[in-house]
Design a protein around this nucleic acid. Structure first.
Lengths: 124, 124
DNA sequence: AATCTATATTCCTATCAAGGAATATGAATC
DNA sequence: GATTCATATTCCTTGATAGGAATATAGATT
């Protein structure tokens, strides 16, 4: 049942934080590291986990991997992501992450979801 | 974070089935066994798991234990149970359980959430 | 081609959850 | 008080997951 796979993704704090950030738009791994302040392996593994269950999609852009929520989420996924948004809104931890994302906003506006100094502007 | 505890409960099919049934009202363990057609240990353990995380409450009534959803669920729990209801509606497995619950309805109406032949009518 | 950068994968260990078998508990009944 | 019934708990084995350290990879740069 797909629903179970979705819930399995949602029962880890790191993954919830990732999804919360992704709700704002696509982003590359290095920025997740910056925002979550967690080691690269941890971020990368959790993104792989999310990807294996269809909660995120990714696309390489030069050296960077840009992750984003699925373009066409299933009804179940859509419903649950909305529910998560609703719940996350109140948690300081999630708010803090979004605040950190805001600080990156200028950079992101200039260079796209990667925003690394050396990266070229993204297509989208 | 309570949210995580909730999701941990939701990532098992048996527990989802239990919660789906409980959304219709309180019930005793023997009826869960009847509806889910799973062994007693399994049902009992999953109910204990749900209970340990505040997703269900229970109350003894003679030999029977009546389980029900919390009288005062947190906002997060309420939101997620509603979301689950929304998602479960479409799954045959959940529908089937509800159909089986319907068959018990007459018995339940007569004797309360336990509905076992020997049980006395419940207070509620 | 050698190097650098961003990210992924492998290997390891520790923890947790699931399921079944057997057993324990608590309340009711004889 | 012994038995019965409904349910819970313990013990065991197995599989899944998390996290870190070390290493591999793919693309860009020199």
């Amino acid at each position: 049942m797909e629903l179970i796979r979705i819930y399995e993704c949602l029962c880890d704090e790191t993954r919830l934080r990732l999804l919360n950030i992704l709700a704002q738009g696509p982003l590359c791994v290095c920025h997740f590291q910056e925002i979550l302040r967690e080691p690269q392996v941890k971020i990368s593994k959790h993104l792989a986990y999310l990807r294996s269950r269809g909660l995120v999609e990714c696309e390489r852009q030069g050296n960077w991997m840009i992750y984003e929520l699925p373009a066409k989420p299933s009804r179940e996924l859509r419903t649950n992501l909305a529910c998560l948004q609703d719940c996350a809104r109140e948690h300081p931890a999630f708010q803090r992450d979004l605040a950190r994302l805001q600080k990156l906003a200028p950079k992101l506006a200039a260079t796209g979801p990667c925003g690394c100094a050396t990266a070229k502007p993204a297509a989208r």
